[in-house]
Simulated assay, not measured.
Amino acid sequence: MTTPGRNRPLKIGIVTVSDRASRGIYEDKGGPAIHHELTRIIANPWEPVARVIPDDIDTIAATLTALVDDEGCDLVVTTGGTGPAPRDVTPEATERVCGKMMPGFGELMRSVSLSVVPTAILSRQTAGIRGTALILNLPGKPSAIHDCLMAVFPAIPYCLDLTGGAWIETDPAVCAAFRPKG
C-alpha cells in the first residue's frame, strides 16, 4: 500500500494546556514528557512544534486548528485539560475542530490508566481527525502520558496511513507499530 504522506516530513504539535504553565507560574512537565516519549518511540526524523496555552476553549481550538492547517502538523498531542474541573475543556475544543472523533483512543487510555489509579475514570481523553491529522488528548501527569502513549501509539502510524498523514516509523524495541499485512 502506498500512502500519500510517505514522502512528507513528519511534524508533530505538542500542546500543554495549563493556565499556570502558560503564565510561567508552574513548570510545564507534560509537554517535555510527550517530547521525550515521542523521541523514544519514533524512528524516522520528525519536527516538534510546541505550544503552552491557557485552559480556554477558544484558545485551544484556535491552537489546534493553526497547528494542523497552518503549521502542517500530522499529529497533535495535547496534555492537560481532560478532567472534570470547570476549566478542563480540551476535549470540547478537540471536538469543535475535528470532523471525525476517534473514541477508541480515549477508551483504551482510560482502560490502561484504570489499572494504575481508580480516579482514571474521571479523565476524558479523546482523539479526533482534522483533515489528514490526528489530534490526541492525553492526561497531564508524565507517568500517565507514558502509559497512554505506549497503549495507543501502535495504532497511530496506520491511522495516519489511512488519513493521508505523514509516514511514521517506530522503534519496534520501544513500541511496535501495527500495520495490516497485504
Score class of each variant (00 low, 15 high):
Phe153Met: 10
Thr90Lys: 01
Gly165Cys: 07
Thr94Met: 05
Ser123Ala: 14
Glu95Ile: 09
Ile121Leu: 09
Asp171His: 13
Ser111Lys: 07
Ser123Pro: 05
Ala173Trp: 06
Ile156Pro: 01
Trp46Ser: 06
Arg124Gly: 08
Leu38Glu: 09
Ile41Trp: 01
Ser22Lys: 10
Glu27Trp: 03
Pro139Gly: 00
Gly13Val: 00
Ile14Phe: 07
Ile168Phe: 04
Lys29Gly: 13
Asp58Gly: 09
Thr79Glu: 07
Lys11Tyr: 02
Tyr26Cys: 00
Pro54Val: 06
Gly140Gln: 03
Val89Met: 04
Ile156Lys: 01
Ile14Pro: 00
Leu108Met: 13
Gly99Ala: 12
Ile41Thr: 05
Ala127Pro: 02
Thr132His: 14
Ala133Asp: 01
Leu114Gly: 12
Pro48Ala: 15
Ala144Tyr: 06
Ser113Cys: 05
Pro45Lys: 05
Gly164Gln: 06
Glu169Cys: 09
Gly5Ala: 05
Arg110Ser: 05
Val152Phe: 03
Thr94Pro: 03
Ile34Leu: 09
Asn44Lys: 13
Asn7Arg: 04
Thr119Ala: 06
Ala85Phe: 12
Leu75Asn: 04
Thr63Ala: 08
Cys175Ile: 07
Ser22Val: 07
Ala177Met: 07
Val77Gln: 02
Cys159Val: 15
Asn7Ser: 01
Val15His: 03
Leu138Gly: 01
Gly31Tyr: 02
His36Tyr: 12
Arg124Glu: 07
Gly164Tyr: 05
Lys100Arg: 15
Thr65Leu: 04
Leu108Glu: 08
Ile129Met: 09
Asp58Pro: 00
Val17Ile: 14
Arg40Lys: 14
Gly24Pro: 07
Gly131Arg: 04
Cys148Asp: 12
Met102Ile: 15
Ile41Leu: 08
Pro54Trp: 08
His146Ala: 12
Val116Met: 08
Val76Pro: 01
Pro84Ser: 06
Pro4Lys: 10
Glu92Ile: 08
Tyr26Thr: 10
Pro180Met: 14
Ala33Ser: 13
Ala93Thr: 11
Val97Leu: 05
Thr170Met: 01
Gly31Val: 03
Leu122Lys: 13
Asp147Cys: 00
Val68Leu: 05
Met101Ala: 09
Asp171Leu: 11
Pro154Tyr: 01
Thr78Asn: 04
Gly182Lys: 15
Glu92Gln: 12
Tyr26Leu: 12
Ala66Lys: 11
Pro32Ile: 10
Phe105Ser: 03
Ser111Gly: 07
Ser18Cys: 09
Cys159Ser: 15
Ile25Leu: 15
Cys98Phe: 05
Ala66Tyr: 05
Val116Ile: 10
Asp28Arg: 14
Thr2Cys: 00
Ala127Gln: 06
Arg179His: 12
Asn137Glu: 02
Asp58Phe: 07
Thr2Pro: 11
Glu92Asn: 08
